[in-house]
Design a protein around this nucleic acid. Sequence first.
DNA 1: TTGTAAGCGTTATCAT
DNA 2: ATGATAACGCTTACAA
Lengths: 334, 334
Amino acid sequence: MPSMKDVAQIAGVSVSTVSRVINNSIPVDKRTRLRVEKAIRKLHYKPNLLAKGLRMRSGGIIGLVVPEIIHQTFVNFIHYVEEQIVDHGFDLILGNTNEDPEKEERFIDSLIRRNVDGIIFSRVSDQSRVFKILEKTNIPVVVVDRFLEKEHIPSIVLNNYKAGILAGSHLMSLDHKNIACITGPLNIALCRERLKGFKTILSENGILLPSGFIYEGDFKFESGIYAIKKFLSDGIKITAIWAQNDMMAIGALKELNKNHIRVPGDISLIGMDNISSSEMVTPSLTTIIQPFQEMCQKAVQVILNHIHKKEITLNRIVLEPSLIIRESTRPLKR
Amino acid sequence: MPSMKDVAQIAGVSVSTVSRVINNSIPVDKRTRLRVEKAIRKLHYKPNLLAKGLRMRSGGIIGLVVPEIIHQTFVNFIHYVEEQIVDHGFDLILGNTNEDPEKEERFIDSLIRRNVDGIIFSRVSDQSRVFKILEKTNIPVVVVDRFLEKEHIPSIVLNNYKAGILAGSHLMSLDHKNIACITGPLNIALCRERLKGFKTILSENGILLPSGFIYEGDFKFESGIYAIKKFLSDGIKITAIWAQNDMMAIGALKELNKNHIRVPGDISLIGMDNISSSEMVTPSLTTIIQPFQEMCQKAVQVILNHIHKKEITLNRIVLEPSLIIRESTRPLKR
DNA sequence: TTGTAAGCGTTATCAT
DNA sequence: ATGATAACGCTTACAA
């Protein structure tokens, strides 16, 4: 690979001039610029990014930390973040932590040592040690899909409370009164938020959500299956279910099918996330949409602001969910 | 961030000694080593990877090029490659090309300029220009899920012919005789291979696959839907279908459901890939498994061999598919 | 065994 | 407007 030196030699100038025409940092004579550009083309010269990154203390990369890759939510994040990142001329280093604090730390460590320009987290745990490490580095950081309570770290989240409201309202608008909920892990704040919104809107309309009607899952397909098994064995009478993500909704659907309970004939089912599978199953799922793309756009924007303006404009950005009605919900028949 | 210089100063040695204890490249006195290690701990020192990469001409990263992120197949690749990569102490830079040659080139370019240690491609086009660029760099390269005809580039692929055999055999073992196939894009060699295997085993057993029984799709959900629509409007009589990936199989399932054709009651359906959705739909899908994890392991192994031994051992690795029988296929009722 | 110094390929500060 | 030169943080002959 040719270096600036080679270009300089061919163009008959010094390396500094080459650097100047490349970054047009300082005005340079038209005729020498032309000579340099010609040499660059001739050699197919491209500046080495490690050298540049070393010198500028900025590696030209952004790190994305996910707790899991297979999960559809994070696939969305990876997809949209990558899109944004490269649009702004950065490269993306991806790290999967598997919720393992040690892997998390190793990855962050590696990023720091690469003079990373920013780090985007999705769904980190509140007590993650990495933030202590990052505090000393003034590397821009943003958390997607999770508020950090203690820290003053910029974050972008969905209005999860509102999601609960939407789900509840929709079901009630269809006259359902015996409603159950399959939640995500309730030690995750956003799940509690969702549930709170759901409960609130129901109770405002005189509908109770007894604890037996709530099943705490873990966002996985199997949770949906177990939830239905539980509801069935408990013998509770319901006509509608909200699962806090589509994966669990699809699990529920599967188990309902197995028990010859028709959706939406006998039970209306609503999910959340609008993952691609949600319109592939039969019946296609009514669900709550998270604006993943917008979330990622904001995340990158926050990072860029931080990089360029050295100042954080807005710490907490809240985006709104919306409802998409498909086949899995229908009015209660009397 | 502290540098070697700082460590050296505190330990009262030169930077070279520090470098030596870190890389234990050359024996160093026990007592000085201890002093250095203490200083390292005290400062929480970690070598800067850009400087190292610059000097060593090896960035400590591996690039992964995918044509699409959302697609389940590539999610699998990303997942398993990441796993392997970090296990071997590298970081992963992810690039999505969207099949756009320009994006492809920009990404490869960026990797080269980062002194990347190796590049893993999945499903590149044969005429991609990047290989010409890469030829001059002697950067280790490996292609997963695609043989490159012209080039002598190491690649790891599935025995797609065998996949066709497996699908066909299974269907015939269930006594099906009127069989259709929904293929991927037939300009992709692996799709032709799959079809060839399928046709071959059928014809060996006296079963023909008329061209009207073949629908060329594009691996997407919608293709499955269109295929069924076509079969139905053409009025062809079939009792079994092989879709060359699960996505299309699920699309087919959806459209069959819509037309009140029961699976597997009226039609047996078999897919390929074993994506997570394949066991979530009802009925769960009989499908052909690709050993994604093994493919990625091999890919990384090939890269590492190339890096260390400077010699390519094996150019083409072929892995075998297997069949998993679930609910969507059953013996033909007479 | 350890230190000195050159070099990896840039950018930035100073002169000129 | 341009050119030396130091610096970024590391590895590695070569000397000592």
